[in-house]
Write a protein that binds this DNA or RNA. Structure first.
Lengths: 134, 134, 134, 134
DNA sequence: GTGGTCTAGACCACA
DNA sequence: GTGGTCTAGACCACT
């Protein structure tokens, strides 16, 4: 449903705002919170909702367009891509890349495969509580 | 053995170079590639090897000294700490950083926590075989 | 036959939609896909078929009428011109446009004029064989 | 040699200035007018030379970085990519794409293969004179 | 000094 | 109304 209103940005975070916007959209998109092919708020609307400059928003949208996540019709608006094979493929690639690097790093630290799983489950458990706090 | 020559830095990455250097050192440290208490190249040598500004190198060393990873003997040079509790702590920090990013990325892709574990085990299984092949 | 249904527009392209429509019409015209003097769909029909705003379609038709490619009979509809000098002229313009862009692109790649011819003949030769295969 | 001073921009042209900059660079790069790995003027210098805003210049540089033509070192500057295999590959791909489209368009207009070559040479001849005028 | 990000505000052509 | 481009000017962290 794309409940944008609650997207606050962390200005202390080193990651640029426009990238934070992209991340938010990616999550929403990949979780199916938004209908494929559906319209997304115009740059002006979005920048008003998020209380950021239109240019910042614009750049986020362009970034997403480059990645094939959304597309623009000039004078009409931005839309989520309809091609969900592309979506799944993208998701798959991103997941594999994350997995690859993660396993590589953990192994480099001397973790056996079971250790990695143990660490992971332990971490996610703790992280959950942390999330609940905030 | 600290084979520094092959340390290429990722200038695309948003993390500062000096921090990338620190990470490299920590990785080398926890992997046992460097003898505890061993000497590390001087700032001048290092900056020449890494083809990096001496200031950048300087800052990396400072950071590591602050963290207790290395220590300096005035007029003599920098040395790895001999304290192995330090080593474990470093390893812990690196693991947490990997975990944090991994979980964040996978969740951003819409994976639930159980999915993440499933994916991980599946990946490590496949990766094993793949490794055996090559 | 003017099989309009398959006309997808390239919203990535910087050329306006109305101009893309014109181009499609011209192409169909010089290819003989439409009988000279034949009727073309009304603006309303067309905009519905192309899933485009009626204003956009309107402007495309105006442009074509101005160029003499089509003409309108009040209260009756739009028709292709019967004048075949027009057809040749259109063909000429399209060819020039293709040539202009092609040469510009190849030169931007550092190709000298002879290189361009060489590349072209080589390509057409290879393309022929490739076509024969499939 | 990258003689930038004479790069005037056509503000009437519909193609954005930042893209015009990219095109200029591409041409210079692919023609070997710039040493691979060489430094290119900083954004501030460049924007002063070209008399455009730093942001415009920035965007041009980023676009080129995305395409792998140049890379940036934060706090240091922009440099041409050193990997010339990548360069050649890019050039090849671009050339093939241009060829493919051109031949397709000309054939669609009813040109035989010899006609295409004839048209091309005729066009380039005329274009040369036109260039000499300006 | 450098690149990178952001803002406020303007203008344009397109739908 | 929309997206797209550009400007002027600011701030930041890194080299």
């Amino acid at each position: 449903m794309l409940t944008v209103e609650s997207w606050g940005f962390d200005f202390d975070d080193r990651t640029p705002i426009f990238r934070q916007i992209v991340l938010r959209f990616r999550r929403a998109f990949v979780r199916g919170e938004s209908p494929p092919g559906g319209r997304i708020p115009s740059i002006r609307e979005m920048s008003a909702l998020l209380k950021v400059n239109t240019n910042t928003c614009q750049r986020a949208y362009q970034e997403m367009e480059r990645d094939g996540l959304i597309y623009s019709k000039r004078g009409t608006g931005y839309f989520f891509t309809e091609d969900d094979t592309m979506l799944n493929q993208t998701r798959r690639e991103l997941a594999l890349e994350s997995l690859r690097r993660f396993v590589e790093e953990m192994r480099a630290l001397g973790c056996g495969d079971e250790d990695i799983v143990t660490e992971l489950t332990a971490y996610m458990k703790g992280d959950e509580q942390h999330d609940a706090d905030s």
